[in-house]
Computed example of a mutant assay.
Amino acid sequence: MVTLFRIINITFILGSTSVILVIISLFTPLFSQAIVYIFSLLPLPDMPAAAMSSPPTAYVVLGGGLTNDHNNQIILNRYSLNRARTAAGAYHDLPLPIVLSGAEAPWLGQWLMEHGIDGLISENASMNTCENARFTAKRIPLRHVYLITDSYHMARARRQFALNGINSTPLPAPLPVRRDWMKPAHNLSHSRRAVYEVAAYLRDVIRPQMDCRHANDVTSQQLLTPRGNAAKDSDE
């Protein structure tokens, strides 16, 4: 009986210590960095051999949300802006077609054209990550792409593209704030983003989104027509 109580006591102490350490790590770069590392180890679904062997032939930029400026005009939020900047930098190093996916596509396209990049392909009917992949696959035949989104969203996005037969090489865009040991609030924003993506990834695996429409349910006209003034703050 004494031994049993000692085991329970030790287990409680170790469990409590682990919980405390995890909570503390949320305010440091450690937690979010660990999540990104774990995401990088996750395998992708099987894809056609051609997708696995072909080189990337385009950049695909996933929208990260819209916001309003001081004049109440719709603009890219900081997530989307960083993705546009990442695409522009990559394009200037290696010019390839750029596919813009999401309701943010018109604003992403405008920003890129203002920075000297044209010949863009837009898909602005999708409203979540699953639809990003399905509608992109319908919009243009692709086997392998450079995928641009943030590092937390990347694993979930790559999985969805793989399910639609598209291989991807990640090009992570930075988050609006950087990890910094001296700035716990910044680290906590990364931790929140990481926790959200862990939950969303598990949801996609265990219980896929019911509102993820099949690409065949959306007409080509819908894929090309701007979607009004819808705005979102992060990936779904």
Rank of each mutant, 00 (worst) to 15 (best):
L142K: 09
R193H: 14
I24M: 08
R207V: 14
C130F: 04
G64F: 00
N229R: 01
P208Q: 10
G109T: 08
L100G: 06
P48Y: 01
Y146I: 02
C130H: 01
A58I: 02
I166Y: 02
H190E: 03
M47N: 06
P174A: 12
D235V: 11
F12V: 13
G228Y: 13
S191T: 03
L100E: 10
A49R: 06
L26D: 02
K138A: 15
T136V: 15
I206T: 10
I166V: 08
M127T: 15
R192Q: 11
N124G: 13
P176N: 12
L171V: 13
G15A: 03
S18Y: 01
F27I: 06
L30M: 06
D46H: 04
L41V: 03
R158K: 15
A50M: 05
S234Y: 15
R143H: 13
S126K: 02
R159L: 06
V198E: 03
A50P: 04
H214N: 13
Q33W: 03
Q73M: 10
T169C: 05
N187C: 11
H190V: 04
N216H: 07
L223I: 13
R178M: 11
R83L: 02
D233T: 04
A87D: 12
R192I: 04
A84F: 09
L41H: 13
T3E: 02
A157H: 04
E123S: 03
V61K: 08
W111G: 07
S53N: 12
S16V: 00
R85V: 15
P97F: 11
D180I: 05
P95Y: 09
S191L: 01
D118H: 10
A162N: 11
H92A: 03
G119E: 09
K232A: 15
L120P: 00
A194L: 04
P226L: 08
D46L: 09
A125P: 08
A34T: 14
S18D: 00
V19H: 10
R156T: 06
A125C: 07
W107N: 14
T17F: 07
I140M: 06
Q33A: 07
T169I: 11
G119P: 09
I117Y: 03
D150V: 05
L41E: 07
R179P: 12
L44M: 12
I13V: 10
A157F: 06
G63F: 03
R227F: 05
P172R: 01
H186T: 01
M1D: 14
R178T: 14
P226D: 08
H190I: 03
N187R: 09
R143V: 04
H214K: 15
P184A: 03
A50G: 04
R139T: 05
P56Y: 10
W111M: 07
Q160T: 08
Y196V: 11
P176D: 08
L44I: 09
T57K: 14
Y201P: 07
I7C: 05
R143S: 14
L14S: 11
